[in-house]
Design a protein around this nucleic acid. Structure first.
Length: 260
DNA sequence: ATGGTAGAAGGTCTA
């Protein structure tokens, strides 16, 4: 079973890229981030035509997440628990139920960027990650296979950024952000991409500016974190890096994991 | 020190 995450940076602008990729990659389920549209504007039928069930948690102009699955989905939830006043669409969760394999709970997330830091946006980021940690703790108590998949907007360690010194004060790499990510990981989750390749630079994002792609000035900020029950089923993981070099690409590329 | 790009939107804001 192949599960993927892809920050598309506007699903409507990215539709040709997203359809082309999904037809080649053939994930069983995928979560998209940064839809930048409301539910009604999500191009659901294009994905339904390829055999996917579609669930959307959209928002006008900003954020927005979706969950697509070739298998039936159950227990669909929209919005990260822990703050009923939070109106930003950054979280979607559902149980993926294949006919001939065990179910997997897929949690699609788009964590706040947090810049400029320090400031209110950075405070919101840290609070949001704290809420994610609380929720992950709850999910762990159920002892089921689940995956936190998405754009965490956190560079876990120096190997995951082309210029660690230059990024030391950025919200994506500040010690508080990395500590928040590490606390989630240290609940007992497996970073599937690092598991696959512990040493290489494994970037998932290259800025549109300053020729970042051409210079390979990338960041690793899109992650797949596996619960112990999911980690026991780990086969392999990967990054579809070539997508960044195509016509009208997103600034992120798809990241995926295969489970037994 | 600044701006460089992309997207939604029709203001700037976000990244």
């Amino acid at each position: 079973m192949k599960i993927a995450t892809f920050n598309v940076n506007s699903i409507n602008t990215r539709l040709p890229r997203a359809l082309d990729w999904i037809e080649r990659a053939k994930p069983d389920a995928v979560v998209f981030q940064e839809l930048k549209c409301v539910d009604e504007k999500f191009p659901a039928s294009e994905f339904e035509d390829l055999g996917y069930n579609v669930a959307v948690h959209g928002q006008k102009t900003y954020n927005g997440v979706a969950l697509l699955s070739k298998h039936p989905i159950d227990d669909l939830k929209k919005g990260l628990p822990g703050d009923k006043d939070d109106e930003q669409a950054r979280y979607i969760e559902a149980l993926i139920c294949p006919d001939n394999a065990a179910p997997v709970r897929l949690c699609g997330l788009y964590a706040p960027n947090g810049n400029p830091a320090p400031g209110p946006k950075f405070d919101y980021k840290l609070k949001w990650l704290e809420r994610l940690k609380k929720h992950a703790k709850k999910l762990l108590a159920n002892e089921e296979a689940f995956i936190l998949a998405g754009d965490f907007n956190v560079i876990p360690q120096a190997e995951d950024v082309y210029d660690p010194k230059g990024w030391k004060d950025d919200a994506l790499f500040r010690p508080d952000s990395r500590a928040a990510f590490r606390e989630i990981l240290n609940l007992g989750l497996l970073d599937a991409i690092r598991q696959e390749d512990p040493k290489s630079t494994l970037y998932t994002f290259w800025d549109y500016q300053r020729g970042a792609w051409e210079k390979d000035h990338g960041l690793r900020i899109d992650h797949l974190l596996l619960s112990p029950q999911a980690a026991d089923r780990f086969k392999k993981a990967g990054i579809d890096r070539a997508e960044r070099g195509k016509e009208k690409p997103s600034d992120h590329v798809p990241v995926w994991v295969e489970l037994r």
